[in-house]
Design a protein around this nucleic acid. Sequence first.
RNA 1: UGGGGUGUCGCCAAGCGGUAAGGCACGGGGUUUUGAUCUCCGCAUGCGCAGGUUCGAAUCCUGCCACCCCAGCCA
Length: 561
Amino acid sequence: MSVEETVSPNNFIRHIIDEDIKTGKNEGKVATRFPPEPNGYLHIGHAKSICLNFGIAKDYDGTCNLRFDDTNPHKEDEEFVDAIQKDVKWLGFDWGGRLYFASDYFQQLHDYAVELIKNGKAFVCDLGADEVREYRGTLKEPGRESPCRNRTVEENLDLFKRMKEGEFEDGARVLRARIDMASPNINMRDPTLYRIRHGVIHHQTGEKWCIYPMYDYTHPISDALEGVTHSLCTLEFEDHRPLYDWVLDNISIPCHPRQIEFSRLNLQYTIVSKRKLTELVKEGHVDGWDDPRMPTIAGLRRRGFTSRSIRDFCDRIGVTKSDNTVEMGVLENCIREDLNEHAPRRMAVLHPLKVVIENYPEGHPEELDAANHPQDESMGTRKIPFGREIYIDRGDFLEVAPNKKFKRLVSGGEVRLRNAYVIRCNEVIKDNNGDIIELRCTYDPDTLGKNPQGRKIKGVIHWVSVTHAIEAEIRLYDRLFNLPAPESAGKDYKEFINPDSLWTLTQCFIELSMADAKPGEQFQFEREGYFCLDEAHVSGNRPVFNRTVTLRDTWSKKNSM
RNA sequence: UGGGGUGUCGCCAAGCGGUAAGGCACGGGGUUUUGAUCUCCGCAUGCGCAGGUUCGAAUCCUGCCACCCCAGCCA
């Protein structure tokens, strides 16, 4: 497979790793991890991180762990841990049995906390949440020390033990690191290490614990326990790195991974924020996490994106520290490139208009041969039934050509039926409203597989035989938001939800050969785009197809300007 | 002068003192029974701005400017 041969592009993180290997750091080993919190589905931004972490492990002959950062049972759920594993696997990565949970380390995390207390590096604080905030100071002014800051080791040990044993209510006390309330870095102003959470059932540890460690405390230790060498995270954690290092420097743990930050992905016309995606799902703006309009891995999969195209996308966008917003065109290009190569061609009529071929014999349908791929003979051919009555797309007929460049069918004009004959339109039948309901045509029997003598046929249109067509529902998707950057418009992003992001067409006709298509199977509907049979939905007894992406269309683009 | 970051083509992004890669997008030509694909050509005398060092600066120095992140007992 060509993807496996692709050389991953270099980036600044790989440069750092190259240097570490050259200088013999970590004995030349490379270990990364992908650490999602199971509080939502993975999205395209996570794909960037997954490709980075697993890609590095693969290329450097190292390892990449899948570790759930499950320190906040309030927001987390088993549904998400299952979905995340499914998505990482689907993206083509393998954690090889190294599946971990931060909650696996709760006991060790607790023991290291006791160690910090014993060394006077942590204390139990009685301040309430509001007071802690007040004492923290502001961005420009230093904070004040908690009145509890100078408790004795014995008292701290006793209080922490009683916190663990459930003696205190939620919020009554926290364990804090004893660092520096005057630090210009707010993260270093005696950050909270442990909080009390009663009455929640943790999806992994049940009711075993009522104190839960914070991210800033859990993450460095989890990394170190797993022997991670390079801990890759996004830019907003850059300010947390001093704390990451402080934790590891102040406990007796032999390993000290290096945290390296890179910028997160932003994609135009969508949002890549788990919190906001959760809102879209919960408030019903979309039909679940796997709605084909969602930038989630599950949504992209259902839309018809291949994992190969997503990996390709991640390679193309690169990894840097600069803020970036990638155009949809890049993602679209990736899936078009993949599907152009791999998707077999089919014909489907989305907006049917009936055509009767008057000089074609009745009751003598024939079977024509059609290539499954115009450039790849190895994909073979198929039979397509042709008959006296066919459907063409309404958009492929106009009574009068609007300009000399129009090459579809017009009254009195000729057009090539893809994989079949040239037809001429002789008559336009209309209903009482003046709407076109049928075309009367004749065909030239001498044009199958060859061009007619003495005249040039400019246009080619697709079609489907009326008697053999399968009725289908086709869903056309457009961008979820009608603003390139819905999150930074200074208003609620939900105001920019595109009301026309889904068009459902219920009376479409697809060619017979797709009768036994499998869920998820992908096709190019010639001249329309790439479509896949929906994984889950059948509407009545009609199959449902999702449009993954249109074909590139320089013609309509030019004419719409 | 609160701290931490980032600024190279419309969007990504190489570049690491020797004279601006590549991809997407865009414009144009060719082939074509998909207005697709494929193919060829074009697309930064310029690297946030201003100075300086140097034979030579996107790369080094100085000073500005713009944008992003941080005051959860979220991650």
